[in-house]
Design a protein around this nucleic acid. Sequence first.
DNA 1: CCATGAAATATCCTATAGGATCCACGATGA
DNA 2: TCATCGTGGATCCTATAGGATATTTCATGG
Lengths: 222, 222
Amino acid sequence: MARPDQIRFRRSTLGEDVYEALKGLVLEHSLSPGDRINIDALAREFAVSPTPIREALARLEADGLVRKRPLVGYTVSPLLTRAEFDAMFEMRSLLECTSARWAAERADAAHREAVSAEAATTVAPQEDDPDGWHAAFTALDARFHDLVAEASGNGLLRDGIDRLHAHLHLHRRYFPYAQASATVEEHRRIAAAIQAADPDGAEAAMREHLARARERHLAAFD
Amino acid sequence: MARPDQIRFRRSTLGEDVYEALKGLVLEHSLSPGDRINIDALAREFAVSPTPIREALARLEADGLVRKRPLVGYTVSPLLTRAEFDAMFEMRSLLECTSARWAAERADAAHREAVSAEAATTVAPQEDDPDGWHAAFTALDARFHDLVAEASGNGLLRDGIDRLHAHLHLHRRYFPYAQASATVEEHRRIAAAIQAADPDGAEAAMREHLARARERHLAAFD
DNA sequence: CCATGAAATATCCTATAGGATCCACGATGA
DNA sequence: TCATCGTGGATCCTATAGGATATTTCATGG
């Protein structure tokens, strides 16, 4: 039985779509930190009215990705200062180490398997499209950490980690291509500890992973 | 030199005010968990247009205090389930114990003093106005924990704790009047450890405080 | 040459109106 | 008696227009 080509399933609302699109623009630095955001211009660009734009911006502000000055306008949140960068990794370490520990302690077989599977996947380096590679690798990293957080069994912890991960994008765009394999290897070690139900090992592996990731990103401050 | 009676200092915008007002209504259960929220009715009540209401609701949704079903409307987030309650206190323990530890390790004299001062203040029981007493005590508790978080020196940690504290209000309204003094005493012990620059002591005191607070609130599930 | 003040502009903020969708109620048929 | 379908009402969602404010620019005086 042939189905109509286009069923209007609009599960999400316009404001929702705008939020996702806008978030993507900020995270991939199509809107650079510090840029002013013109509501009317965005409305024209997305072909919607300013109202859903305002709604999306309000949510993004709660996420800390944009800032609002009354009667002046929205701006993309500025680049992280060194102090904010340190605070973020301190917080990530606190949250994610516990996430890994709990995942090792509590996760069921399906979650452990999902974590291991994600850690096993790789993205092929694409010399001709560094931006695409960067995006793919970033997405891979985000998925892995989110899967671990999901396996921890605490939804609030998962939300907090996700929120922090978004802040990571407010850092200067920098990608240590040469060390991508190191990241993957660290992920594998975490996944193995979780698979083996070794809380201490999982926490330690995550702690080392974050410490190294911090070092890698630190180079961007030069 | 006489100044005009009314300088329109409107630092905050309308949407901001609505957000604060609405948040207050939710936190004090003037809007009960599960209640539907009629945007137009709220707009009439606050004497503003629906737009700032929508903006405030979008932010409250990001905070997790209200939920939105597309093309249906907003509702106040439902009461915490037992599992969510446990997850929340698990998360609070993780965040606040570290908060207390870092405050003891790093805070400057002014912050330590502020924490101690807040721990020393009390609210007089008001038999004739239990709601007012409850509100005052809740505010006191929130201020104390926020001051400790501020003293920890990590703004992200402070934000996370504040966010969680709001969720606490989604619990069934219950107040162990008889044990208010116990709470104050526990606060004093935490403050003393921070004042004495004793990280282990501060963390332990906070851990015990949260464990006891959890027990106190657990009674509301009966 | 610099500082000060006022006018012009762009933008945000708010209010109102119309279209689209979902929920509830009642009627019909098995 | 139960399930299914159609209609009415309420609500949300979107679009557009007008008022208010901050920023910028330019002219003027020191």
